[in-house]
């Protein structure tokens, strides 16, 4: 059993912090909408080796972040977003 979490607000909302506090090993986090601003700089929260981080390509491009993204975060397009939902048993959306 694993869960995909989406985070769609900027880091200042501190949703990622709450999300990671109830996450379990093997879960994944996908940043969408303003959530993709998490990918711009390395933070302690992102150095969590038990969780895989992804970000939505279309939202990165829109915000001028496609070349500023951390290498450690994998980019997926909306098809990849659907695949992540299929690959995990549950979805929790943080908005």
């Amino acid at each position: 059993m694993s869960t995909l979490h989406t985070v769609s607000k900027a880091p200042s909302f501190r949703l990622l912090e709450t999300c990671l506090s109830i996450i379990q090993a093997g879960d994944a986090v996908l940043f969408i909408e303003d959530g993709v601003y998490h990918c711009q700089q390395s933070t302690e929260l992102l150095r969590n080796s038990e969780v895989k981080f992804y970000c939505l390509r279309e939202d990165l491009i829109a915000r001028g972040l496609i070349d500023r993204k951390l290498d450690t975060i994998e980019t997926v397009n909306t098809q990849g977003f659907v695949d992540l939902c299929v690959q995990h048993d549950g979805i929790v959306n943080w908005f």
Partner: peptide, 10 residues
């Protein structure tokens, strides 16, 4: 009950 996945956008 009847879906495999429920996703919320807000």
């Amino acid at each position: 009950i009847n879906s495999d996945r429920v996703i919320n956008f807000g």
